[in-house]
Every structure is written in structure tokens, then in C-alpha cells.
Write a protein that binds this DNA or RNA. Structure first.
Length: 388
DNA sequence: TGCGCAATAT
DNA sequence: GATATTGCGC
């Protein structure tokens, strides 16, 4: 029953019938009625252009009225001007289809939070965020670094040692080897106490030198040897003072501070073991006893003893700062109470040499009598072992 | 001023 | 962690 298959007449009739039916619902289906009616007119050829045009206008009017919702605007326009419609339509549809776009754009201003950022928006957002955050992450390392670096500089050397030493320490630079050859002038002797700053009133040089951190003095065996020697002369680590030691050492460029520092370390090393001894006699390692000849002694005592026993110092400096003699005999594993150690030590000393007990007087004058290391002092040992 | 100790740097 | 330097109080 498709119209196209119908006879024209039949078609007209059918149309007429429908029109009648629809007419009943004129109010409900005005458009339909009108449509049908027009179809009639067209079919009958009673419509001229003018009539059609009028109808159009009428139609548009009605549609406009009816289609306030805007639904039919399209259809109307479609019928009127198809070209432009589409052009406009497309964009409209776009907008409609992707409301997020506009909405987001606008809404972004109001509420990012409400809408979960999507896709492009999202990425943009993130991107924008990343301009701040991710950078931080990436730069985080950098920025802190920089900051830390700055801080480090400030902390580490900033205040006082912004520059790395060019250090004027003539002898010091080579120290290890240099100290061996102490040149005549005892540079530090008088002035060096405040190694860098104290002496110099000069502002500029003072500044410079202040900035420089002293180059490290490494205590070579030779240097330490001298140190021990001086120490011995002065009656041991406890009674010797840095200045005296330095003077006795006669090392060019050696400062009081350096000696002082070394002495401090030396004392610490000597005392620790002693403490250990008191606590635990059985632990030979914990209580480093050094073999002097055939006996074990404690470092400090050794220092004294060794110097006494022979004119030459035969010490060996362990890297740890533990000072041991060159053992000529297999170590006798003896964990003797200090008393016995002292006895042995004393024995040894007696064997080697006899001595006066005036060491105190001796070392009190320190530098004065210094030059005759071998001759003086053997006796300290007994007296000089306060730590024990 | 020098010493001893502790903090700090290397 | 060991060692040297520096700072600070006495």
C-alpha cells in the first residue's frame, strides 16, 4: 500500500480519508492535518507558487510558535536554506556533542575541582600544574641541590674557608717528606701558636689566610718519630706540652696547633687501651701492648722506654696511630697486670740504661735541655705512667 | 699565651 | 672511622 504503488486516484482517496481522520485531532495534530491538506493541494495542482510561498510562511510561523524548544528550528531552516544550515549546524553539533569543551573552558574558571579533568583538558591542567610541580620534581633535585650546595658551601667552608687552600704552608705542603729536613729556622717556634690568624694583624692577608683552611699535616713516620722523641724527653705524653714538643721536634713549619692536635690524638689512643686493660685483661687486642724487646708495654711507656733504651728511636708507626716498636722476637702472649708490665718495662730500662729521676725538672724546662734525648730521662717510665 | 677538650672538617 | 683542623673556655 505504498503511495507510490497506488493509483493516483486511490492515493487521493486514501489521503482524503486520512485527512478526515486527522481533522478530528485538529488541535492535537495541526501539522499533520496541514501537511495532508497541502499534499492534497499539491496533488491537485491547485497550488501555485504564490500559494506555496504563503503556505511556507504560514508554516514557518506556526512552526516557530510550536517549536519554541528549538527542536524544529533545524527542520525549518533545513527546508529554507540548506546550505548555511549545515555550516552552522556542524559547529553547533560540535559544541553540543562535546559540551565539555565549552563547559570546561568556562567552568574551569569556576570549578576545576568539580569536574574531573579529562583528556586534553586534563593534560592541559596537568601540564599547567606541571609547570609548577613537575618542574619541582625534576628541578626538585636541582633546586635543593643548588640550595644545598649553597648551604654546604656556607656551612662547610663558607664562613671561614670559602677557598681551598693554596695554603702558604711552605713546608706543610710536602710535610711528609719535608719535615724530615727541618731547616734551621724554626718558623713556628715563636709565632706559630696561633698558626694563621693570631700573628697577623694585617687585615688583608689575615682575611685570605682565614679563608683558607690549613692544609692537612700528615704525620709521617719520621715526623712522628720526632714527636715521640720529644715526648720522651718531656716525660711522656701527659707531661709534655705541645709547645715544648714542637720546640724539641725542631720541625720547620710545624705549628703548635698541629702538635697539640697530634698530642691529643696520641693521648686518646693511649688512654683508650688502658681503659680496656682495666676492664678486660684477657683481651690482648683490646689492650694493645707493644712489644719492646721481649716485653710488652703500653704505648706511652714504650715511647719513653724505647727512647731510653737506645739512642735511636726504632718506632714503627701504625697507620692507626698505634705506635709499636719493631719486634725482634716472636710476640710473647702475655696478659700481665700492669704492675708486672711496669716491672718488666722497668727491667728493660734498667738493662738498657740507668737514669736519674729528675725527669720532671728536666722536662719542665723542656726545650732547654732538649737536645740530648738519649742522655736524659729513663726514669719517667715509672713515674710517667699515670695512665697505668 | 698556651693548654686541653670538643666540635668540625677532610 | 681515623685523622687533622678549628673554636672555645680556662
Amino acid at each position: 500500500m505504498h503511495p507510490q504503488n497506488m493509483e493516483f486516484r486511490d492515493y487521493i482517496e486514501a489521503l482524503e480519508e486520512e485527512r478526515k481522520k486527522i481533522q478530528v485531532f485538529n488541535k492535537e495534530l495541526p501539522l499533520s492535518l496541514e501537511l495532508v491538506t497541502r499534499g492534497f493541494l499539491i496533488l491537485y495542482g491547485e497550488f501555485d507558487d504564490a500559494a506555496i510561498e504563503a503556505c511556507k510562511q504560514q508554516l514557518s510561523g506556526t512552526t516557530t510558535e510550536y517549536n519554541l524548544n528549538g527542536l524544529s528550528e533545524c527542520s525549518e531552516q533545513t527546508s529554507t536554506e540548506e546550505g548555511p544550515v549545515f555550516e552552522e549546524f556542524i559547529p553547533i553539533k560540535r559544541r553540543a556533542s562535546s559540551p565539555d569543551y565549552d563547559d570546561d573552558d568556562e567552568e574551569q574558571q569556576h570549578s576545576h575541582k568539580q569536574k574531573i579533568p579529562k583528556d586534553s583538558t586534563n593534560s592541559d591542567w596537568l601540564r599547567s600544574v606541571q609547570l609548577w610541580n613537575p618542574d619541582p620534581p625534576s628541578t626538585k633535585e636541582d633546586v635543593p641541590r643548588k640550595a644545598s650546595v649553597v648551604e654546604v658551601k656556607r656551612n662547610g667552608g663558607g664562613a671561614f674557608q670559602p677557598f681551598h687552600r693554596e695554603e702558604s704552608t711552605n713546608g706543610k705542603a710536602n710535610d711528609a717528606s719535608n719535615d724530615k729536613a727541618p731547616s734551621s729556622p724554626q718558623v713556628p717556634a715563636t709565632s706559630s701558636t696561633g698558626p694563621v690568624t693570631k700573628d697577623h694583624v694585617d687585615g688583608s692577608s689575615n682575611k685570605e689566610e682565614k679563608g683558607l683552611r690549613k692544609q692537612r699535616r700528615s704525620w709521617s713516620q719520621e715526623l712522628h718519630k720526632r714527636f715521640l722523641h720529644a715526648l720522651h724527653q718531656l716525660g711522656g705524653a701527659d707531661s709534655a706540652t705541645p709547645k715544648q714538643i714542637r720546640e724539641l721536634m725542631k720541625v720547620d713549619g710545624l705549628t703548635n696547633d698541629e702538635v697539640k692536635s697530634h698530642l691529643q690524638k696520641f693521648r686518646l689512643h693511649n688512654r683508650r687501651p688502658n681503659l680496656m686493660i682495666h676492664k678486660n685483661n684477657t683481651n690482648s687486642q683490646a689492650a694493645p701492648l707493644f712489644l719492646v724487646g721481649n716485653i710488652f708495654v703500653q704505648p706511652q711507656e714504650y715511647a719513653t722506654a724505647i727512647a731510653t733504651s737506645s739512642g735511636e728511636l726504632t718506632t714503627v708507626t701504625a697507620p692507626t696511630g698505634i705506635y709499636a716498636p719493631v719486634a725482634s722476637h716472636p710476640p710473647i702472649v702475655t696478659h700481665k697486670p700492669e704492675a708486672s708490665i711496669q716491672k718488666l718495662q722497668f727491667k728493660q730500662l734498667e738493662l738498657s740504661e740507668h737514669s736519674n729521676s729528675e725527669e720532671r725538672a728536666n722536662h719542665s724546662e723542656g726545650a732547654g735541655n732538649s737536645n740530648s734525648p738519649t742522655s736524659s730521662s729513663s726514669t719517667h717510665i715509672t713515674t710517667t705512667s699515670p695512665a697505668c
